[in-house]
Simulated scan of single mutants.
Amino acid sequence: MALSFTVKEATFKEADLVGHIVESVKKIFSTMIFIDDIVDEYPLAKPESHFIASISGMVGLGGDFSGMVGIHIPIEFAKEATASMLGMELDELEGEDDIHDAVGEITNMLAGEIKMLFSANNLTVGLSTPSIISGSDYTVEVVSSGAAVVVPFNRNEHRFLATLQIEA
């Protein structure tokens, strides 16, 4: 069954949300990170919440509804994306701060793109400051009775997820 949710008088269908996420992620990676070969692989074969050697960025949504926007990305690709975003070589990155900041900013940009979709439908949406989780082995569980859209992406051997969780 396809996901659909209504807030006030605006109804959003899964296909529309997925399309907006795909377009937004590809635009962000192309224009801000200078990586043009991102491929979406929707739908996700099975739910994923366990990550190995990864970094997750999350931005909360609040206003007419609540929710969360997330990016879950392997640390090696996060390093690549950070270096490209900053115009640096991989070996010029120092520590994890730049990587955490870059993933936070990527997540914030995606949340901003999603906010624009909702705002265009006369919904009030505020964004939280990005939160970052990283590690060699961790699980991200969203406790919610709401709807979720998870879009997998690939770049070469790297697979990452963009997520939207909505509590209407």
Rank of each mutant, 00 (worst) to 15 (best):
M68G: 00
D101R: 05
P152F: 06
L110K: 04
H158N: 14
T124Q: 10
V39N: 06
H158W: 12
E157K: 14
V103M: 07
F29W: 14
M32I: 08
G146A: 11
I132H: 01
I28N: 10
F77E: 08
T11M: 06
I71P: 00
E41C: 09
E96V: 13
V151C: 06
A111E: 03
P74D: 02
F12S: 05
F160C: 03
R159Y: 02
V18D: 07
R155Y: 12
S136Q: 11
G126L: 10
E92R: 11
G126T: 14
E14G: 12
G87R: 10
G146S: 04
S144K: 02
L90C: 05
N122T: 05
I75V: 10
S134Y: 11
V151Q: 08
G126S: 14
N108Y: 09
D98I: 04
H100Q: 15
D40G: 01
N156Y: 03
L93Y: 07
M109D: 01
I35T: 09
D36G: 14
E80I: 15
K115N: 10
M116G: 01
L86C: 09
G57C: 08
K13L: 13
G126N: 15
S136D: 14
G104I: 04
G70A: 13
I114R: 05
E9N: 15
L127M: 07
S24P: 01
E105P: 00
S128G: 10
S144E: 05
I73K: 00
E76S: 13
N122D: 14
S119W: 05
A15H: 13
G135K: 03
T107F: 06
S128C: 09
M85A: 11
A83R: 10
E141G: 01
S66Q: 13
I106L: 15
I99C: 07
V59W: 06
F65Q: 02
M58E: 09
A102L: 11
M68P: 01
L127I: 07
K8E: 11
F29H: 03
I52H: 08
V142H: 13
T107Q: 02
S144F: 12
G104E: 07
I28C: 09
L164Y: 03
F160E: 00
V18R: 04
S134Q: 05
F77P: 06
V143A: 13
V25W: 12
M68S: 12
A168L: 01
L164T: 02
E80M: 12
I132C: 03
S49W: 04
S84F: 00
S54T: 06
S131L: 12
T107G: 05
D98S: 12
V103D: 08
